[in-house]
Amino acid sequence: MTAVENPTDAAALVSPPRQLIVSLYGLYAREHDGWMSVAAVVRLMADLGVDPQAARSSISRLKRRGLLQSCRVDGAAGYALTSEARQILAIGDARIFGRRRATRADGWLLVVFSVPESERDRRYQLRSELTRLGFGTVAPGVWIAPGQLEAEANKALKRLDISEYTSVFRAEHVAFGDLRDNVRAWWDLEYLQALYTGFIEQYRPVRERWTSGARPDGAAAFPAYVEMVTAWRQLPYADPGLPLDLLPPDWNGVEAEELFVMLREMLAGPAAAHARAVLLPQTVGAAGAV
């Protein structure tokens, strides 16, 4: 869910193995009680062009971060999603696959905070979380987002346990200043445009390849779909669904969203069939397979 450092560099669009594993678990593990055998993860990561050593190393990092926990099922070594990871993925589902673009009628959500210097680590955590959620910065200690993010933001702030330093308000723009100018000041729209451009440039050829010829089979659809979802995941967070009438006339976020939806409809089914062919037998005679 982290943003690429240079959105105009095509190489930056290649997803790290750790993010690909998060996508694998989010897309396919939850129908297997959140668990996948190590053998299955390594096999599926190989289909994504990741070697076994890099896959195992990434799994270990996710375990250290508290997102995966090791456990055996029917004697097979594997990793399951932690409760924290399940919550994160559930929230991500709504943002990634069910995002609704805001309108002015939704109003705005303001988060105002003042964290003492003695707790600067918690202040950094708060700023990082607000950035991850797609908030813009009005002034030091005053952050803003479309009003539709209220429930998600409240849950995130409760997890940080920092309520004694934070207040959350619903607001509307009443007077003074052009709201379009304000949005340009509060969010880095050029950066967002560059992220969308990178996604479009990478996946428009994928759409053209399969709309002009035969539809993809599972082996071809699986890597294309998992990589696309991984690349897309950051975009609905970087752009929190800002109202279209406050964005530049050449805004390319809508084209990127339509491209994502079209490719998802085309690829998700055969990609899932490919993954299930690997995952369904994962507990049968899997002990010692790795």
Rank of each mutant, 00 (worst) to 15 (best):
L179T: 14
L179F: 15
L179Q: 14
R180G: 15
R180E: 15
R180P: 14
R180C: 15
D181P: 05
D181I: 11
N182F: 12
N182G: 15
V183R: 14
V183H: 15
R184C: 13
R184N: 15
A185F: 05
A185N: 14
W186K: 01
W186F: 03
W186G: 05
W187R: 11
W187L: 12
D188P: 08
D188A: 13
L189A: 07
L189D: 08
L189F: 06
Y191A: 14
Y191T: 11
Y191N: 13
L192K: 12
L192D: 10
L192C: 12
Q193S: 15
A194Y: 00
A194H: 07
A194R: 08
A194E: 10
A194D: 11
L195T: 05
L195E: 14
L195D: 10
L195K: 08
Y196S: 10
Y196N: 14
Y196K: 10
Y196T: 06
Y196A: 13
T197W: 03
T197Y: 05
T197K: 12
G198V: 06
G198M: 04
G198L: 04
G198C: 05
F199M: 08
F199G: 08
F199S: 08
F199Q: 07
F199L: 09
I200V: 04
I200N: 01
I200L: 06
E201N: 11
E201Q: 10
Q202M: 13
Q202C: 08
Q202A: 14
Q202N: 12
Y203W: 06
Y203L: 06
Y203M: 05
R204T: 07
R204K: 09
R204S: 09
P205S: 09
P205M: 08
P205V: 05
V206T: 09
V206L: 11
R207E: 03
R207H: 00
R207Q: 03
R207F: 03
R207N: 01
R207K: 04
R207M: 00
E208Y: 00
E208A: 13
E208V: 07
E208R: 11
E208G: 05
R209L: 08
W210L: 02
W210P: 00
W210H: 01
T211M: 13
T211W: 06
T211V: 11
S212T: 01
G213N: 11
G213Q: 09
G213A: 13
A214C: 05
A214G: 03
R215Q: 15
R215A: 15
R215W: 11
R215H: 12
P216W: 07
P216K: 09
P216H: 10
P216A: 13
D217S: 06
D217E: 02
G218N: 10
A219G: 07
A219P: 00
A219N: 01
A220R: 13
A220N: 12
A220H: 09
A220I: 00
A221Q: 06
F222L: 10
P223V: 01
P223M: 03
A224D: 02
A224L: 02
A224V: 02
A224Q: 06
Y225I: 00
Y225P: 01
Y225D: 02
Y225K: 01
Y225N: 04
Y225R: 00
V226C: 02
V226K: 06
E227K: 10
E227Q: 10
M228W: 00
V229T: 09
V229E: 08
V229A: 12
V229P: 09
T230M: 06
T230P: 11
T230G: 10
A231D: 07
W232V: 00
W232Y: 00
R233W: 12
